[in-house]
Structure formats: C-alpha cells, structure tokens
C-alpha cells in the first residue's frame, strides 16, 4: 500500500493530550496574549487543565517562550484532589467505611 508522505506540520502536533491542544494553538496564544508566565499561558490555552493536570505536557509548555523567567512564573501549584475522585467518595471523606 502506498503511503502518503507525512505532514511536517509541527503546528498540528497535539501537545496537551487531554485538551487536544496543538503546538499551533500554543504558538497562536503566545502571539495573541503575550503571556508573561506559564500560568497565564495555561489560562488562555487550557494546557494542564485536563484530567492529567499537566503531568504529561509540562516540559513541552516550558519550551515556549514567556517573558518572565523568575521562579514565580513557573512554580508548580498543586491543588486537591491530587488524583481524580468520584463525587460520592469526595462527599463522604472522613466517614468510617
């Protein structure tokens, strides 16, 4: 079977697998919003806001260029639940089971 040559379009490559965010989406957001931190980039692209919470895509996002290079611009912030949890379990934490 003949194979089509692959697309070399880096822009079409998915970088945040959860949110199906592409490298092109990230570059576009960089240009449109000129974010000054990874957190701000996150707020306009949703990288790291899916179910894996950025565990996979974080290093790729760091390869983007954001103005601010201070630690505050890329510090890891973790909020519970650290792993997804069903509502009925969340609603009854602390109760004897």
């Amino acid at each position: 079977m003949a194979k089509d040559a692959p697309s070399h379009e880096d822009d079409a490559v998915i970088v945040c697998r959860c949110e199906a965010l592409t490298w092109g989406d990230v570059k576009q957001a960089m240009e449109a919003f000129q974010p000054t931190s990874l957190r701000q980039l996150k707020s306009v692209t949703r990288w790291g806001m899916g179910i894996c919470q950025g565990r996979v895509c974080r290093p790729m996002m760091a390869a983007t260029t954001v103005e601010d290079q201070t630690e505050a611009a890329f510090r890891l912030v973790v909020r519970p639940p650290f792993k997804p949890v069903a509502m009925n379990i969340l609603g009854h934490e602390g109760e004897k089971v």
Partner: peptide, 8 residues
C-alpha cells in the same frame, strides 16, 4: 500511554 497511572 504511560502504563503507570500518570497520563489517564
């Protein structure tokens, strides 16, 4: 993908 519970 990751096989050990990180990527979901």
């Amino acid at each position: 993908f990751c096989g050990i519970g990180h990527c979901f």
